[in-house]
């Protein structure tokens, strides 16, 4: 486990020393601080708009950080061949990949925590309230990002960085709309589209399961059973994707 921890620490340190991360983080914080403007410009409950807008912004920027950093940092390790020095040592390939994954997840978690702290501060300053529900929504976003980072890790070992980024973004988009498209196809009699959507729906994760924004913003209750199922779904799916990534990387020739 020491090798996994060392690789995770090195990945986290590499991410923290990368300017791209601060660019994303800067934009996200700016957006959250400016959310008051959107609240003013929108018809409706200002507090709900700020929270909704804030959570959506956090999800978007955390997703961008997760996708870009994951594919970039894993591919960079292989392309720049620093992986040679690691794997010629007594380190298993799965230890390398899981170490990279955990380092990336730590990076995503720290950024998500920072953005959530800014959103909480914004709500305290503008709305004079502390909404613990925002922490719950952020935790579910982290679970979603854990799964997305696992997909980014899988694509990083399967293909080139550019394609890996595109594929991971596609998983994010499809994962959020697959349920809607599937429901839509139940009412459409199309020979080709329906089996295709059923296949996509079966293989790709339903990322909408992790979306509790509406419940938090509107103060609706969420049952503990639903939360537990979502956590199990997220962790099981993440583990499955990581197992696939490790299996592929185990036999990959590093040329």
């Amino acid at each position: 486990m020491r090798a996994v921890a060392a690789i995770a620490r090195n990945t986290f340190r590499e991410a923290l020393r990368d300017r791209v991360l601060y660019l994303f983080l800067g934009f996200a914080v700016l957006l959250l601080v400016c959310s008051k403007l959107f609240g003013l410009l929108t018809v409706g409950d200002e507090g709900k708009v700020i929270k909704d807008f804030g959570l959506a912004g956090i999800q978007l920027f955390t997703m961008l950080i997760a996708v870009m950093m994951s594919v970039l940092l894993i591919s960079r390790e292989v392309d720049s061949r620093t992986v040679y020095n690691i794997l010629a040592k007594p380190v298993r390939r799965w230890q390398f990949l899981i170490g990279k994954y955990l380092g990336l997840l730590a990076t995503v978690a720290v950024n998500l925590a920072l953005m959530t702290a800014v959103l909480l501060l914004v709500t305290v300053v503008y709305l004079r309230e502390f909404d613990a529900g925002l922490l719950f929504a952020a935790a579910m976003t982290l679970l979603e990002m854990a799964l997305l980072t696992a997909f980014a890790t899988l694509f990083a070992v399967l293909t080139r960085p550019m394609l890996g980024t595109v594929f991971t973004l596609a998983v994010f988009v499809i994962g959020h709309v697959a349920e809607d498209i599937w429901l839509l196809t139940q009412h459409v009699d199309s020979g080709i589209v329906r089996p295709l959507v059923v296949a996509v729906h079966a293989v790709l994760p339903n990322l909408e399961r992790f979306n509790f924004k509406a419940e938090v913003v509107h103060g609706l209750g969420v049952s503990s059973g639903e939360v537990a199922l979502t956590v199990i779904y997220g962790l099981a799916y993440t583990a499955m994707v990581l197992v696939l990534a490790c299996a592929r990387f185990r036999t990959k020739d590093l040329v």
Binding site: R2, A5, A6, I7, N85, K89, P90, V91
Partner: peptide
Amino acid sequence: EFHAELLA
């Protein structure tokens, strides 16, 4: 130091 960790 990183490589020393890998070598345990």
